[in-house]
Design a protein around this nucleic acid. Structure first.
Length: 309
RNA sequence: GGACGGGUGGCCGAGUGGCUAAUGGCAGCAGACUGUAAAUCUGCCGCCCCUUGCGGGCUACGGAGGUUCGAAUCCUCCCCCGUCCA
């Protein structure tokens, strides 16, 4: 059975994924499929380093600007949408080029999630209330229902404790047991995973610069505009580095220098986490350097050619 | 010249006789991650040693002495920094 081909450009933020993906799509008549959990949102442009429409050289970009900032979105949701996009792109014999740094979304797309229930806000509210009453009680409850998950998840990691418990309560089975049933992996595609790995010093330097530029280039105004549209400061995407500090700046909790400092720091930490994540990703083909560097780009292009050829 | 305040591990900064290799933050390193993941969480972080568990050794709180069973913590002198008075 013949499979379609997909190229994925992965790596830490600021590594030049968007640029490389764009070049790839252009060269191999492809279309870019976003795999970034924040570029999914409308109006979040500057802080997410979203490629402006004018810079896309006419190449179609998918899964960007498809959600309002107050809409709840999940990895499962992403996987469903992305798979549909992949099928559509492939159907018109175009090459899907996935680009993004959200490793979890990418894994949900390619490896799949376990067949479990969706999130249940009501249940979560109740669990949160319970936790507030007695700290640690939710983890203890998980221990009774699913000792294996409880042992694996740190008691302090509340979000993960809640999800495991949610699965247990909704399915009346242990989450760890359900995990063993496997994941619904992507079928019908060969995926070439290209990882961008610039040196850390250079990456951090670029990130620091970029972050500062965001603040001088309208990030705060962008945030003000989003709020003016009626979206609450409590919206999920505002919890991300850069945006969080912009909100705090607007609230007078930070001055500009502090906001930049914290945004830079958190961005660096994020990049580090991404590297940790992608290091564990199977079958990655790593390229040193930035995706917008001609040498790196050429090397990646050559690899892609062999993959497609 | 005089009066105060201060010199602590890469940085900031607690600590004011033993429980202190020394709270905490920053920086750094490593890791986890199965439906809000740019989120959330964990570990290491003076040096060396059996990679053996709360193990052992060495060097550490400006410098040099001293008091003490024991000092980053007390005393003396010296050096440096800051503020003020001259």
């Amino acid at each position: 059975m013949d499979k379609h081909q997909v190229i994925a450009i992965l790596g830490p933020t600021g590594a030049g994924k968007s640029e490389l993906a764009l070049s790839m799509a252009q060269k191999f008549t492809g279309e870019v499929v976003n795999c970034d959990s924040l570029q999914i949102y409308r109006y979040f442009d500057i802080g997410t380093a979203k490629l402006p429409q004018e810079a896309r050289r006419g190449i179609p970009h998918h899964l960007i600007d498809i959600l309002d900032p107050d809409q709840v979105f999940t990895a499962g949701e992403y996987a469903r949408l992305a798979r549909r996009v992949l099928d559509e792109v492939a159907a018109r014999t175009s090459l899907p080029v996935i680009a993004g740094g959200t490793g979890f979304y990418f894994r949900a797309l390619v490896d799949g999630l376990f067949p479990g229930p969706s999130r249940d806000q009501g249940l979560r509210d109740r669990l949160s209330a319970r936790e507030r009453r007695r700290s640690g009680s939710v983890h203890r409850l998980l221990g009774r229902l699913d000792a294996e998950s409880a042992a694996r998840i740190h008691p302090h990691d509340f979000p993960k404790v809640v999800r495991a418990l949610e699965v247990c309560l909704l399915t009346r089975r242990a989450a760890s047991e359900l995990y063993r049933q496997g994941r619904d992996a992507l079928r019908g595609y060969h995926v070439l995973k290209i990882g961008l790995a610039p040196t850390r010093d250079q990456l951090y330097q670029r990130l620091d610069q970029r972050t500062e530029q965001m603040f001088h280039g309208g990030l705060v105004e962008e945030v003000r505009g989003i709020l003016a549209r009626g979206f609450p400061a409590s919206a999920k995407p505002f919890e991300s580095h850069g945006y969080r500090q912009a909100i705090q700046l607007l609230n007078g909790e930070l001055n500009l220098n502090e906001a930049i400092f914290y945004a830079q720091r958190n961005t660096r930490r994020y990049a580090k986490r991404q590297m940790t994540w992608f290091r564990q990703e199977q079958q990655m083909e790593w390229f040193s350097g930035f995706g917008d560097d001609p040498v790196t780009q050429q090397a990646a292009m050559d690899r892609a050619s062999r993959f497609l050829g």
